[in-house]
Design a protein around this nucleic acid. Structure first.
Length: 470
RNA sequence: GGCCCCAUGGUCAAGCGGUUAAGACAUCACCCUUUCACGGUGAAAUCAUGGGUUCGAGUCCCGUUGGGGUCACCA
């Protein structure tokens, strides 16, 4: 049975790159009728962020990825929070100590720093030479210590990665890294191996930053007599050719995009395609369809640049197919914030806006004309294409108002154009500007009158008339 | 710097020795619409570079360049 996992450290938000890693792990598990596990990697107590686990869980929920085992829901391999598994790691560290695959190290930070200052590129195995008795004595004396992994001094290690193929690393380039820190907590390098095995993880899906250290983990699997998992390393999502998308650049978090008005599934759909090709030439896909078409051979070997513009396009597709009621409900908070308590038909506004909005937050500018009417620039009456002028508006405003009162406004406007020897477009332009005060509106004059209602429409035009005649 | 990995239009990408080198976003033009969008049609735009191998190379090999990753008591 396939078992994959998403193992974030609780930093306070879910990075879009992390979300994609989680997504691929989820898709792969579901595609193979397997299980998707959530594990929290919080062994660095100094980086503890309160409430971070809840944020991750709720983000996964919103994204539509339900984990089968993990915090809160539990499972047979719990606990799923590493800080609660301390004793387990110590137990396995002891086995490694016994077999000689690990050793106690008492080197001080000062000595380590001096070593590097002297040009050393890795730890010199200084403490490996200590006898067991001596090590025990120093521990008994209360000296702080760590446990290091004993890596062979010579030879190479090759393993197969599902996306990169065979990767070979020379042991000379690997350091005797720390397995257990002086506070008794394991490092990622150790905990990840122990947990992946104990939790029955069959496919290890993670970022490329672990590509080169994977041989160290394999050494651990081998020493403990465990079967290695299948490895699938993922290239990062970039902001541009040389920088990863990061929180520092702002808005690299899943929640940030939600706040910007993106729909959760649109984000998921977009990032699924960033670094993976479904081979069916389809882009807009439901979660079920993603699961159905997911396959690791569509995974990209190179990193990809995040393109918010394209995500907006995909989002607009989902916005358009929303039931009008849903769209209206989603739009309401924006109306309340940007054009509250106006004399307009908000439901009709939603109807007009739905096809003109890519992300919900576009509503702000799209509906701005409703609120920003009073002081619009009269120069808007000037239109190059239609050759309209402010003077023309001044001349026509009274009649435009009359037309608006008419039962058949459109016909009246048309008649007005004819009477004045103008093109209909010229009259319509002036009429719509007088009504909305905006060069672009989510509908023509007729729609705008319907949106405002005749009374409010006339009130607006009267205000403009006064301004024109001042 | 050592080591590992990567390299097709501006971006996401198909391609797995023989193609007019798909498709999508963005861009531009036109149509539709007497606003703006939506929609439709079309255009422009890519194999980083130098050597091989081969009848034939975007596809295979080597070098170069560029980029990323990694060298922590962080994950």
């Amino acid at each position: 049975m396939v078992r994959t996992r998403f193992a974030p450290s609780p930093t306070g938000y879910l990075h879009i790159g992390g979300l994609r890693t989680a997504l691929y792990a989820y898709l792969y598990a579901k595609k193979n009728n397997g299980k998707f596990i959530l594990r929290i990697e919080d062994t660095d107590r100094t980086r503890e962020v309160k409430g971070a686990v809840d944020i991750i869980i709720s983000a996964l929920e919103k994204a539509g990825m339900h984990y089968d085992e993990g915090p809160i829901v539990g499972g047979d391999c719990g606990p799923y929070v590493q800080s609660e598994r301390k004793d387990i790691y110590l137990e396995y560290a002891q086995k490694l100590l016994d077999s000689g695959d690990a050793y106690y190290c008492f080197c001080t930070k000062e000595r380590l720093e001096q070593m590097h200052a002297d040009g050393a590129t890795k730890y010199d195995k200084h403490c490996m030479r200590l006898s067991k008795a001596e090590a025990q004595a120093r521990i008994a004396a209360g000296e702080p210590y760590v446990i290091r992994q004993n890596i062979p001094e010579n030879g190479t290690s090759t393993y197969h990665d599902e996306v990169f193929g065979d990767v070979t690393v020379d042991f000379k380039d690997l350091e005797d890294n720390i397995l257990i820190k002086s506070d008794g907590m394991p490092t990622y390098n150790f905990a990840n191996v122990i947990d992946d095995h104990l939790m029955g993880i069959t496919h290890c899906i993670r970022g490329v930053e672990y590509l080169m250290s994977t041989p160290k983990y394999n050494l651990l699997y081998d020493a403990l007599g465990w079967e290695r998992p299948v490895y699938i390393h993922l290239q990062p999502i970039m902001r541009d050719a040389q920088h990863k998308l990061s929180k520092r650049d702002g808005d690299a978090g899943f929640e940030d995009f939600l706040a910007k008005g993106f729909l959760p599934h649109a984000i998921v759909n977009y990032i699924a395609l960033l670094g993976w090709n479904p081979k069916n030439n389809r882009e807009k896909m439901s979660m079920d369809e993603l699961v159905e078409s997911f396959s690791i051979d569509g995974l990209q070997k190179s990193s990809s640049i995040f393109d918010e513009t394209k995500m907006r396009w995909l989002n607009s597709l989902y916005v358009k197919e929303m039931p009008v009621d849903d769209f209206h409900k989603a739009a309401l908070p924006y109306y309340e914030k940007y054009c509250p308590d106006k004399n307009v038909d908000y439901v009709y506004l939603s109807e007009l806006l739905q096809s003109r909005v890519e992300v919900l937050s576009d509503i702000k500018e799209r509906a701005a004309f409703i609120d920003a009417f009073d002081n619009f620039d009269l120069e808007l009456f000037v239109n190059k294409k239609w050759k309209t002028t402010v003077d023309m508006a001044r001349e026509l405003i009274d009649e435009c108002i009359e037309c608006t009162k008419a039962d058949d406004m459109n016909a009246a406007l048309e008649a007005l154009a004819e009477k004045r020897g103008l093109k209909k477009g010229q009259v319509l332009w002036i009429h719509r500007i007088a009504l909305t005060g905006a060069a672009a509106t989510p509908g023509g004059g007729a729609e705008m009158v319907k949106l405002f209602g005749k009374d409010e429409a006339l009130r607006r035009m009267t205000v403009v008339k006064a301004r024109l005649e001042k």
